[in-house]
């Protein structure tokens, strides 16, 4: 059975755990602890190791969904998982103090995943505050990963439809990049 690892990253409170719950077919395994950093995210608990969910497709494929903790003190987990991952769903909350700076920070950490697989960015909590425009996020991505075209969507992590859109666009981008590479000789 082929295994496909998709990471969900982002700062604390961006909705990673919720997003995985929206997609997973199994009860999501969460490692949450009481949140002692109320200034960063006003919520009761936060992920300290991993969230895990999965989607099984027949007998052939299993999509493993890993949510990695947002705090930098757990970043040793990031490097372990990103080596095996095919793609990244990066979630950012629009009402954070500096979402564009957070975007840059995470792209610096996970930029090589864009080269080896794919990245899609989901902006949550846009219903709470508008925050930067999608064009602002796109410009920040272009600055961090010149020449890259990363999908950026506004999302509600509680919405299965939104998270399916993120996942499918991530996979589509990875597959079409591979196919376009094969066709480049003809098209260029």
């Amino acid at each position: 059975m082929a295994e496909h690892i998709i990471l969900f990253a982002g700062p604390m409170g961006a909705g990673k755990t919720t997003a995985i719950r929206s997609l997973s077919e199994i009860e999501v395994v969460s490692t949450e602890a009481a949140n002692t950093d109320r200034e960063t995210a006003d919520k009761d608990t936060t992920t300290v190791a991993l969230d895990y969910g999965e989607i099984t497709i027949g007998d052939e494929d299993k999509v493993r969904l890993y949510g990695i903790p947002g705090q930098r003190r757990f970043d040793f987990m990031w490097s372990v998982l990103k080596e095996r991952a095919m793609g990244l769903v990066l979630l950012l909350n629009a009402d954070a103090a500096a979402p564009l700076a957070q975007l840059t920070e995470f792209l610096e950490e996970f930029g090589d995943l864009h080269r080896t697989g794919g990245v899609v960015v989901g902006i949550t909590r846009t219903d709470v505050t508008a925050g930067p425009s999608l064009a602002d996020y796109a410009r920040t991505i272009e600055a961090a990963l010149p020449g890259s075209l990363v999908p950026v969507f506004t999302v509600d992590a509680r919405s299965g439809a939104h998270m399916r859109t993120c996942l499918l666009s991530l996979i589509a981008n990875i597959e079409m990049r591979s196919l376009s590479g094969a066709l480049t000789g003809q098209v260029a």
Partner: peptide, 18 residues
């Protein structure tokens, strides 16, 4: 990319967009 969570797209559009 357009914001696919806001427009009424079909999955073919997503692949063609990619």
């Amino acid at each position: 990319w357009p914001n696919f969570t806001e427009i009424a797209y079909q999955l073919d559009h997503m692949r063609m967009t990619a």
